[in-house]
Design a protein around this nucleic acid. Structure first.
Length: 490
RNA sequence: GACCGGCUAGCUCAGGUGGUAGAGCAUCUGCCUUUUAAGCAGGGGGUCCUGGGUUCGAAUCCCAGGCCGGUCACCA
């Protein structure tokens, strides 16, 4: 067994033997169901008094509660969509009633019978035939309080899902959000693609990668931190609208909004700029919220978020001044470093300039934006893959979408000038050589692709987990991940 | 990584200013033919996270460690 055997498990194992002794296979192969708990409730909603459904139903599920009364027994069966009460009677089941009494909560069974309403008004299946489908040998959590311990809920998510309906509901919602995203993009002519997760080089984002190793080629590899550079190669190849929805891996700490692996959507469209992408981001998010929640007003962590378009736009410089009390207007790099130092930024002189701006921004601004806000036009040094702003050489055409103090999306007018791109990657490369673990690698093949010519394009990345957090009210990213990253026990 | 808090029965939780651990649910036995947190009566179940120390005696106090949560830091 998976742990030391206590009396509860011993008792269940003994019952397992008793079923076998009675000639029952406790783990049979199939069971024919004709319906489910929800269909039954919908179909027989009008059933009254002593009426019975004209036909028998056959359903299967997990026994969640059991209330024996001597010669009768009530129980609740939980299937994939809900719960329904069943009623077993010695008179109707004859010999098999004795075995029915041996069932434990947690067991899977299939039952057959007509539907009636009890005198307390609950639709119930009167069991005429039943079959054990899988014996449970481990006791369920308590029926009233369920499983509360967060650690156990994350580590044993399967138990959390079986006893906490709202957890199941949340992951159903997550799945709907993801399919609505696909629907939105496909309706607009975007094609879903898959690019490598195993990367030879580190690129596409500022993040520390996980390292792995390929034995056959005797070479180190990185788990991808972003699909960006491959998706842009597809623009070079001639695809005009592509997206990828998949996992990325970042070798960083964990927090309520960070998990080392998370789901990212990246979208690229040829012949448009970040202004177009900003519009599309508003459309995408409002479409998804409407389709899944039916509203653009969302309650999150005590805030009433309103996603009605258009969303606020503010330049990063203005955001720093208005929300961070840091005025960088007309300042040169040295003056800005002085300001940062006064604001208590550690290593204000050692950090790269781009990184310094990011630190200022993260520290003084991000948490301040609660309503959906586009922060736009970042300093050039922060963003090596974005095009320079058309009327300001020192900035790039980039936006981040902030909601509830979290970065939800990041996008730019994509840099397609191979000479400029080479220069910027060279700077990254120098930073890397100087010890910056997050700096990007020089990717000669990507540069070669740009040399062939990449059309002007807008690109977008959306953190799906954070979007789901906001749509579901989840306070921690762990609550929207089925199996969040956990330190192993012992 | 720092600080704070938590860890007691399968689950949810009490308790413990140091004297050898409790409740509810679950489980087991008996009674019970429409219950639904079914009921009544009785029973069993513990590495009080781990290791060390202080003590006649540690689940309780002290030290170290583990895991989890929160805050901060790191990190888009």
């Amino acid at each position: 067994m998976t742990e030391e055997i206590n009396d509860l498990i011993k008792g269940r194992l003994q019952k397992l033997d008793e079923f076998k002794a009675a000639g029952v296979n406790p783990y049979p192969y199939t069971y024919n169901i004709t319906t489910n708990s929800k269909e039954i409730k919908d179909k027989y909603e009008k059933l009254e008094g002593h009426d019975e459904s004209p036909e028998e139903v056959s359903i299967a599920g997990r026994l969640m509660t059991k209330r024996g009364h001597g010669k009768t027994c009530f129980a609740h069966l939980q299937d994939g969509i809900g719960k329904i009460q069943i009623y077993a009677k010695q008179e109707a089941l004859a010999d098999s009633y004795e075995l029915f009494q041996k069932l434990d909560t947690g067991d899977f069974i299939g039952v057959k019978g007509k539907v009636f309403r009890t005198k307390t008004g609950e639709l119930t299946i009167r069991v005429v035939e039943w079959q054990l489908l899988a014996k449970s040998v481990h006791p369920l959590p308590e029926k009233w309080h369920g499983l509360q311990d967060k650690e156990l809920r994350y580590r044993h998510r399967y138990v959390d899902l079986m006893v906490n309906q709202e957890v199941k509901d949340l992951f159903v919602k997550r799945s709907k959000i993801v399919s609505q995203i696909r629907k939105f993009l496909e309706e607009r002519g975007f094609m879903e693609v898959e690019t490598p997760l195993l990367h030879v080089l580190q690129g596409g984002a500022a993040a520390t990668p996980f390292k792995t190793y390929h034995d056959a080629l005797s070479m180190p590899l990185f788990l991808r931190i972003a699909p960006e550079l491959y998706l842009k190669r597809l623009l070079v190849g001639g695809f005009e609208k592509v997206f990828e929805l998949g996992r990325v891996f970042r070798n960083e700490g964990m927090s309520y909004k960070h998990n080392p692996e998370y789901t990212m959507l990246e979208v690229y469209q040829a012949y448009v700029d970040y202004n177009h992408i900003m519009e599309m981001t508003e459309e995408l998010v409002t479409f998804v919220l409407k389709e899944t929640l039916g509203t653009l007003e969302v309650e999150y962590k005590g805030h009433k978020l309103n996603f009605k378009r258009p969303w606020k736009r503010i330049t990063l410089i203005d955001a720093l001044r208005e929300h961070g009390g840091v005025d960088l207007t007309g300042k040169n790099e040295g003056e800005i470093r002085e300001i940062a130092k006064k604001k208590g930024i550690e290593g204000a002189n050692e950090l790269g300039f781009g990184k310094l701006i990011n630190v200022l921004y993260d520290k003084f601004v991000e948490a301040d934006f609660i309503q959906p806000t586009f922060v736009i036009d970042h300093p050039l040094e922060t963003t090596p893959l974005a095009k320079k702003k058309r009327d300001d050489e020192n900035k790039v055409e980039r936006f981040e979408l902030i909601v509830a103090g979290m970065e939800i999306a990041n996008a730019f007018s994509e840099l397609n000038d191979p000479i400029d791109q080479r220069g910027r990657l060279e700077k990254q490369s120098n930073l890397k050589a100087a010890g910056d673990k997050e700096a990007e690698s020089m990717d000669e093949d990507f540069l070669l692709a740009l040399e062939y010519g990449m059309p002007p394009a807008g690109g977008l990345g959306i953190g799906i987990d954070r979007l789901v957090m906001i749509a579901t009210g989840a306070e921690s990213i762990r609550d929207v991940l089925l199996f969040p990253h956990m330190r192993p026990l012992g």
